[in-house]
């Protein structure tokens, strides 16, 4: 298949870029700036995981592996399990105390790298299977949570992370609000476009959303 190589390559590049921010020369950036940590490295990790999951979907698995995957899919209908996993991992690594730990302790940082990468993969796996209503449920709780956290950080009344200056936190807070609003808007736009397309071509073969057979 033509698409396999470029997708895996982008996944590897994104993973390497995110890792580079946790290793010596690049580490200074996430140690000094909450913006680099929360708005560059963390989204990059999610993206890297998502790209890897997308590449894995395109991979031509052996019959045996494909059967196993299909059997495992029983436990993840509509991507419920994956989305819940992504939600938990994201909530965990948004806790100010854990952001501090990731900056101060290499072990915690390694756990964060793995956790958010897996969250990205789970997000891709889940969103691909979830109907719009399930996506709305998860997005509708996670995105407002991010907006609230961003506004709280940007208000600057309390310094949430001992590892970062208040200025850095305020900047990261504003960025987080913008990011969450941007993702929400993109989601709505994407679905509107898909609905409009469906209306334009009602006889399109293959349903995008899984439905139980009547």
């Amino acid at each position: 298949m033509r698409a396999i190589r470029p997708l895996s390559l982008t996944a590897v590049v994104a993973t390497a870029a995110a890792l580079a921010l946790s290793l010596p020369p690049g580490r200074v950036l996430i140690e000094q700036s909450m913006v680099w940590h929360m708005l560059a490295q963390m989204p990059l990790l999610l993206l890297a995981g998502a790209l890897a999951a997308a590449a894995a979907e395109q991979h031509r698995w052996s019959n045996r592996a494909a059967d196993r995957l299909q059997r495992a899919a029983r436990f993840n209908r509509y991507g419920l399990g994956s989305l819940m996993l992504a939600q938990c991992l994201l909530a965990y690594w948004m806790l100010p105390a854990l952001i501090d730990r990731a900056v101060l302790l290499p072990g915690a940082d390694a756990a964060k790298l793995a956790g958010l990468w897996i969250a990205g993969a789970a997000l891709r796996l889940g969103l691909r299977q979830a109907p719009a209503a399930v996506q709305l449920f998860f997005g509708g709780t996670a995105l407002p949570m991010l907006v609230w956290l961003g506004l709280y950080m940007a208000a600057g009344e309390t310094r949430l992370c001992n590892a970062y200056t208040l200025d850095s936190q305020i900047l990261a807070g504003r960025g987080l609000v913008a990011l969450a609003l941007g993702v929400g808007t993109a989601w709505v736009a994407w679905h509107l476009r898909a609905r409009l397309r469906e209306r334009g071509a009602p006889a399109a073969p293959g349903q995008r959303l899984p439905h139980r057979a009547p």
Binding site: Q58, A66, L69, R74, L80, C88, A91, Q129, P210
Partner: peptide, 29 residues
């Protein structure tokens, strides 16, 4: 063969295993 599209997976076996997974993940989280 490529990894089968989830839409093609048989939903006939119900949602119970998925709900159980979901709750287990939530409890762990």
């Amino acid at each position: 063969r490529p990894n089968p599209a989830p839409a093609a997976a048989k939903p006939a076996d119900g949602l119970l295993p998925s709900f159980a997974t979901c709750l287990a993940v939530l409890a762990l989280g």
